[in-house]
């Protein structure tokens, strides 16, 4: 029982929290892919931007990071729309891979701006350690993990409502299905694109703030997550937002659980190699099922 509690408390539940962060990021990558047909390499740096926006509010106004979260989400959303307008819009009719290179440039610009404005030191939203909160029996959960998981659940529910019920959400699915037919149906596809960036950028900012809460804040916090995010998007079937949620959770849990000492006293996968787990999953999917578990699009 104690061993199980240790496994759940120290490996599984933190894995769920990490998985939520991945899910929030991967949903954006998948949505952007579904609508704009390109892999957005600057997504990790949009996450970093959101995390630092929240940090500014925490550091200068003394806000709680959770209060700063919605502001950061709004900031990430608006910044993404602006980036699209300035950088990506001229490429609407270019081959997707050209836009990928452009997103490389965006990645460089965002990161260097962050380094210029906020420096390169490792930062924290708050100092000191909070006691984990007991759940049932020996099971405990860190406060930050509870909040990350609950807020992510709420966001996922809101996203589901948006995509399945709202007019714009349905238009988004329609455009993902067939952009020409969406145009023929009278849908303003540029408006759909704007909404895609609002949602993708907002979710990325939330993921960035959570990544900062979960560990620390530094200029490559988002870049370091890019590999697991892509792995999650491919696992769930690229272009499928729901798949990305499941893929994110699966990769997050797999990464944490892989560091459990399954065989000897040592971690099965050294913690420094967590990202290798994501890469392994990505490679397996590319070999056996590039469409993802939910049959996404093959590029």
């Amino acid at each position: 029982m104690e061993a199980l509690a240790e496994f759940v408390n120290l490996y599984f539940l933190p894995g769920v929290a990490v998985g939520c962060i991945y899910a929030l990021g991967a949903v954006g990558i998948s949505l952007i892919f579904a609508i704009l047909r390109f892999a957005h390499f600057a997504h990790g740096d949009v996450m970093t931007l959101g995390a630092y926006l929240a940090y500014s509010l925490v550091a200068s106004l003394g806000w709680s990071v959770y209060l700063a979260l919605p502001v950061a989400v709004l900031g990430g959303a608006l910044a993404s729309v602006a980036i699209d307008r300035v950088v990506y819009q001229p490429f609407r009719r270019s081959p997707g891979i050209i836009v990928v290179i452009a997103s490389f440039g965006v990645m460089l610009v965002l990161r260097s701006l962050i380094q210029l404005f906020w420096g390169v030191d490792v930062l924290n939203y708050e100092t000191g350690i909070r006691k984990p909160i007991p759940l049932i029996g020996d099971f405990r959960l860190a406060q930050k993990h509870i909040i990350i998981i609950l807020v992510s659940l709420a966001i996922a529910a809101a996203l589901h409502w948006f995509l399945s019920r709202s007019r714009m959400g349905k238009a988004m699915r329609a455009m993902s299905d067939d952009a020409d037919l969406a145009r023929i149906s009278g849908i303003d596809t540029e408006k759909v694109v704007r909404w895609t960036w609002l949602i993708g950028g907002g979710l990325a900012a939330a993921a960035g703030v959570f990544a900062g809460i979960n560990s620390k804040l530094h200029p490559s916090v988002g870049w370091d997550l890019l590999l697991p995010l892509f792995a999650a998007a491919i696992l769930g079937g690229i272009g499928k937002p729901y798949g990305a949620i499941v893929g994110g959770l699966a990769i997050g849990i797999a990464q944490e659980v892989a560091t459990y000492p399954w065989i000897s006293d040592l971690p099965l996968v050294p913690p420094a190699y967590k990202n290798a787990v994501a890469f392994f999953v990505m490679v397996c999917m590319l070999i056996w099922r590039p469409t993802g578990i939910f049959k996404g699009r093959v590029l």
């Binding site: 892999a39 390499f41 890019l226 491919i234 050294p270 420094a272 290798a276 890469f279 490679v283």
Partner: peptide, 27 residues
């Protein structure tokens, strides 16, 4: 693994392999 699929997959996989190489050399 990637070249039978289209461009974006290769981009993601090459980001992945260089990240793994970085981890190994660092650790």
């Amino acid at each position: 693994i990637c070249l039978g699929l289209k461009g974006d997959y290769l981009a993601m996989a090459t980001i992945g392999i260089s990240e793994i190489i970085r981890l190994i050399l660092k650790n």
